[in-house]
Design a protein around this nucleic acid. Structure first.
Length: 260
DNA sequence: ATGCCGACAGGATGTCGA
């Protein structure tokens, strides 16, 4: 099965691009972030016409996450635990039956957190702590699990074109990178890095300053696998070419192929 | 040091993104 994730930067503004990519890529499961719309205005019909079931955790104007699946979506849960006072739609998970068992998938849109030293940065770190605690719980299920989405974290210096350009940014703060390492240290595997050692492979290029043309990108969209999922990993890739399409998102899709 | 670009809500321009 092919599992993909993509920060689409508004699913309604991007619907033609997203549909074209789905037709071409044919993922079994697709997680979207920054859908920027509520559940009632999510373009469900366009995806159902392609044979997908949809789970949506939307929000007006900002954030919003969704999961599309060719197989049924079960045990759908919206929001991380300990969500009192958190009205951002940033997390959605579902269980999906496979031929032989079950796989669990989460669509994740971690907070940006800029600028550092503000309550926005504190919210980012707190949200990542909540994600870690929830991941710890999910790992006790000992089932194939994919935590996929926009983590808004540049894990390593080689995951950006120039670390010096990011030292003051929330995406590259030591605390942010430590939060990502803590997730890996639970026993999760970075699917892309498990398949590719080469530096400078990016999933995001800013719309500004000719970032795409100069290949000034960052790798911030990640697929994390439980041990049971990592054992089934066949390949992973970044759909870089999508950034050159007309009216692109500033992020591109990334996918992992598992023998499920 | 700052804007660059783009989506959104609303109906001008500020907020947010990363």
């Amino acid at each position: 099965m092919k599992f993909a994730t993509w920060n689409v930067n508004s699913v309604r503004a991007r619907i033609e691009t997203v549909v074209a990519w789905l037709k071409e890529t044919q993922p079994d499961v697709a997680c979207f972030q920054e859908i920027k719309t509520t559940d009632d205005t999510f373009p469900r019909d366009a995806f159902e016409a392609l044979g997908y079931n949809c789970a949506v955790h939307g929000q007006k104007s900002y954030n919003g996450v969704a999961i599309l699946s060719k197989r049924p979506l079960e045990d759908v849960r919206a929001g991380l635990p300990e969500g009192d006072g958190d009205d951002h739609a940033r997390y959605l998970e579902a269980q999906i039956p496979t031929g032989s068992g079950m796989v669990r998938v989460a669509s994740i849109y971690a907070p940006n957190g800029n600028p550092p030293g503000t309550d926005r940065f504190a919210y980012k770190l707190n949200w990542l702590e909540r994600l870690k605690r929830h991941a710890t719980e999910l790992l006790t299920y000992e089932e194939p699990l994919l935590l996929m989405g926009d983590y808004n974290i540049i894990p390593m210096p080689e995951d950006c074109y120039d670390p010096k350009a990011w030292v003051n940014d929330a995406l590259y703060q030591p605390e942010s990178r430590a939060a990502y390492r803590k997730l890996l240290n639970l026993g999760l595997t970075d699917a892309f890095r498990a398949c590719h050692a080469e530096p400078h492979r990016y999933t995001f290029w800013d719309y500004q300053a000719g970032s795409w043309q100069k290949d000034h990108g960052i790798r911030i969209d990640h697929i994390l696998l439980s041990p049971q999922a990592a054992d089934l990993l066949q390949g992973s890739a970044i759909d870089r070419r999508v950034r050159a399409w007309e009216k692109p998102s500033d992020h591109v899709p990334i996918w992992a192929d598992l023998t499920l």
